[in-house]
Nucleic acid binder design. Structure first.
Lengths: 285, 285
DNA sequence: GTTCCGCATGAATCGATAG
DNA sequence: ACTATCGATTCATGCGGAA
C-alpha cells in the first residue's frame, strides 16, 4: 500500500473547498494564535478571532467523515491583564455549526515559556479541544496505553521523607530492585492530560508542538491507510508523523517556504526528522 | 492575635447578603457540580447552572475586597457524550457582572478517579478559575516557590536510553552525586498547572479537594490575619487550612451535618486532620 | 566515546515610553 | 485616551566545545 503525502499552498479557507466531503478521518491542527505570527497570517486580533476561524471550521466539518475526529490545539492570550474569551466563544459557535464538543484534553507542557510578572505565573498548558461530527467516532484506546505508575517520583518522595545523606548508600543498593519492579508491571489507559515537552528542535524550523502530540492522537483516532489533514501545516510536523505511521495526509499552508520545505522532505531529498527524537511520554512523571 | 473561624448554616445565596461588602480577602470554593440527581440545592440541571450560580457570584463580588481574589474550582460534566458548556457560559456571564477573568489554573490530578469508557479517557484535571475585582489584587508569589527542575525524570530518561540492567550498578554509585546536585539548586516560581493528588481521606467525610489546594492559594493570595470565605464549605477543608495558616475564615453550608462537624472541630473536641497529610507538591514531577 | 559546563532560544507578558 | 514598540524578566532544553 502506497502512502500519499500532499502539500497544498494557499489560504486554507479557500483550499479546503476543493477537498471532497466526508473524505478525512482525522484533523489535527494548531492555528496561529491571536496576534501571534503577525507577518504570516496578518495578525488576527483577539476580538476578530472567532469570526476569522468559523468559515474554516465550517469547511473542516464538511470534509470530515462521520466517524472522524478534529483536534484543535489552541490557547487564549492575555489582554489587559485578563484571559481573553475567544476560545470559549469559538467552542460555542462551533457547536452551533453542528460540531460536538466531545472532550477537552490538556497539554501540560514540561518546559513552558519563561518570564515573571507581578500578577501571574508562567503559562504551562494549552487546550486540545476534541470535536466530532457524530457520537460514533473511531477510537483505538489500546494504541496509546502507558506504563503504569510513577517509579521515579515514588522514589523521590521516599527520599525526601527520610534523611537523605544517611540513606544514599542504601538507596543505591535498592535501585535495581525498583527498576525491575517498574518494568515488569502492566500498562494502563492514559488520562485526558498529556505531559510533554514543548518542542523537538530542528536545525532551522522549529515546530510549535512536538511530534509526540500528533503521534498520540493519530494512533488514538486513526488506522493505517486513513487520511489525516492539517490545514495550518507549518513546518509539517503532523504530516511527518502521519507518514511515519503509514497514514495518508494533506497539509495546507499559506507560506511558500514551508510548503517547499515539506515537499522536499517528502521526496526524501532532505530528512528533517529530529534525529534524537524521543518517543512520547504522556502521563509519565 | 486571635484567629476567628465561623460556620454559617443555610443557603449561601441568602446568607452571603448578611456579610459586609469589601470585607473578604480571598474566596475559595468548589460548588456542587451540575447534576440532575442530587437533592441538595434542588438538583441543578446543567442547563440551569449558570442561572443558579449568578446570584451567588454577584454576592461574592460584593463582599470581596478590591484587592481580593476568587478561586472557583469547577469542571463541566459530560452530557449526552459531550462536555457541557455551562462553565464557559458562566465565565462570560460573570465578566458581565463585573468580574475580571484573570487566569485559569489547571489542577492536574495525580490519582484521578478510575474507570474506562469506550469513547473517552479518565478525567484527570479540573479548572481553577481566578476572578478578580480589580487589576490591583494582592499576590505573594514568593510564598509558593517550588524546587527547581526535574531531577527524577532526567535520571529516568537516561536510564531508558541505555541498557537498563547493565547500568544499574553504575547508577547506584553515581546516585549521591546527583542528589547533592539537585539539593544545592535554588527554587523557582511555579506555573499555572498544579500537580497534586486528589484527596486526603478522612475517616467519614471525604473532601472534594485535598488540603494542598486551598493551602497553595491561601499562601499565594492572603497574609496572616486576612479573611477567607468558602460559600460551599462541605467538610470544611478550606476553613481547616485557613485556620492552620492563621487566617480568619467564614464557611457557609446548607447541610446541618457538615456545619455541626466543622463546628465541633473548631472547638478542638474532634481533630479531623488527616494524619498522614502531605505538604503540597505543586509542579514537582 | 563519555560527561560536563556554558550558552542561545523560545505560541509570553508587563510596564514604560513614544506617537 | 488609545495604540504601537521595546526592554526586562525567567527557566527547561538541546547544542557545541572542552576536559
Amino acid at each position: 500500500m502506497e502512502i500519499l503525502t500532499e502539500v497544498i499552498m494557499g489560504d486554507c479557507t479557500e483550499k479546503l473547498k476543493k477537498l471532497d466531503e466526508n473524505s478525512i478521518d482525522f484533523i489535527f491542527t494548531s492555528p496561529p494564535y491571536a496576534d501571534a505570527r503577525k507577518r504570516t497570517y496578518g495578525g488576527i486580533h483577539p476580538d476578530k478571532y472567532v469570526y476569522w476561524f468559523l468559515p474554516i471550521s465550517e469547511q473542516l466539518l464538511r470534509v470530515l467523515k462521520p466517524t472522524g475526529t478534529f483536534i484543535l490545539n489552541i490557547k487564549e492570550r492575555v489582554l489587559n491583564g485578563e484571559r481573553h474569551t475567544y476560545v470559549l466563544e469559538l467552542i460555542m459557535e462551533m457547536k452551533k455549526q453542528g460540531w460536538l464538543w466531545t472532550e477537552e484534553f490538556v497539554w501540560h507542557k514540561k518546559n513552558c515559556y519563561p518570564g515573571k510578572w507581578p500578577n501571574r505565573f508562567r503559562d504551562a498548558w494549552e487546550r486540545l479541544l476534541q470535536f466530532n461530527k457524530t457520537k460514533k467516532f473511531k477510537m483505538f484506546q489500546d494504541n496509546v496505553m502507558v506504563p503504569v505508575g510513577n517509579w521515579a517520583e515514588t522514589r523521590l518522595r521516599k527520599l525526601s521523607e527520610t534523611d537523605l545523606k544517611r540513606d544514599i548508600s542504601r538507596v543505591g543498593s535498592g535501585f535495581g530492585k525498583n527498576v525491575s519492579n517498574w518494568m515488569g508491571r502492566d500498562k494502563v489507559y492514559p488520562t485526558n492530560v498529556l505531559y510533554m515537552a514543548t518542542q523537538c528542535y530542528n536545525k532551522k524550523h522549529s515546530a510549535v508542538f512536538p511530534e509526540s502530540l500528533p503521534e498520540w492522537f493519530i494512533k488514538l483516532f486513526t488506522e493505517v491507510g486513513d487520511w489525516v489533514l492539517d490545514p495550518f501545516m507549518g513546518s509539517g510536523t503532523t504530516l511527518r508523523v502521519a507518514k511515519s505511521l503509514a497514514r495518508n495526509s494533506i497539509g495546507i499552508d499559506i507560506e511558500a517556504e514551508y510548503c517547499d520545505m515539506v515537499r522536499r522532505e517528502i521526496k526524501g531529498k532532505q530528512l528533517l526528522l529530529c534525529e534524537n527524537r524521543k518517543s512520547y511520554e504522556a502521563n509519565k512523571h
